[in-house]
Amino acid sequence: MKLFAFEKCSDISDAVKKTSASDTAQQGANIRFVAGGTTLLDLMKLSVETPDTLVDINRLPLDKIETTRDGGIKIGALVRNSDLANHPYVKSHFPVLSEALLSGASAQLRNMATTGGNLLQKTRCVYFRDTAYPCNKREPGSGCPAIEGDNRTLAILGTSDSCIATNPSDMSVALMALEATIVIKGPGGDREVAINDFFLLPGSTPHIENVLKPGDLITHVVVKPMPAGSRSVYLKLRDRASYEFALASAAVIVQVENGKVSRARIAMGGVGTKPWRSLEAEKALSGSAANEANFRKAAEEALRNAKPQSHNKFKIELAKRCVSHALKMATT
């Protein structure tokens, strides 16, 4: 860990101003926002992140959960994961989000971790987190030992020759199924980005993980209400019963009318280089009878393009069972 400056900011525009001078908003940024710090401080101790300056945004007025006129919610970027998960309106109207949050980390971490920070959670790939190894995400062009190495927990969807790192977030998977919108304040003003467009695939630039540019501050996450009659489930599969990242998870939101699926939203965690929405599975399921055979077919679609590595082939079948069982749970 190297020495760094720690700055407080007076308001949102000050925060934006202070980080605009950063060389990047992605891996290795020299000026970084810090909120809960549950990922960033770890990575700084590991010398994986080495910012010169941290801009503390904890006092910005972004810690509210508001209901919107259409019955949705507007979540401040600084709302703690525990507050979001336990908010009565979230629990009653967006249970999939609450379940996803509560399946992640530990109570202590959830008390610190924020909504904005969770969206930016870094991969747990062991090679990324250890500077003794090369890593294209940490040092572009240095190589990816994970592809030939220990990749049991790594991604099978959205991978490239440069990177197979898994996005570890649970919350983002639920937000994918909820088709959330990310509100960003940047040097050029406010903009809104659909969550599916927010995350980028690694391709040949795995160090660039999302659309954020220097000075960009996530201020809110907006979620539209689930259509009436929708039922949702977040199912997370892992080795032990708690406190572990997903080997495979699924967030599903399904509407069934007259025994047929009229609308489905299916997103997966633990298997993709980004939180993974499967339009293919949704399409396959839509209009078909709500039964186990069709759930399995949808799951097959979701994993059709999966590319296994040496140690994680099992995740394909595991993810299929996860999606299919989540759909069954949501419809029975």
Partner: peptide, 25 residues
């Protein structure tokens, strides 16, 4: 404990990656 073959390091050398039983187990 998972010793990685190229450098010989125990790769899962932390309590998130070395899985122990937790209370829920």
């Amino acid at each position: 404990t998972n010793y990685e073959p190229t450098k010989g390091a125990p790769l899962n050398s932390n309590l998130a990656d070395y899985i122990l039983a937790v209370n829920a187990d």
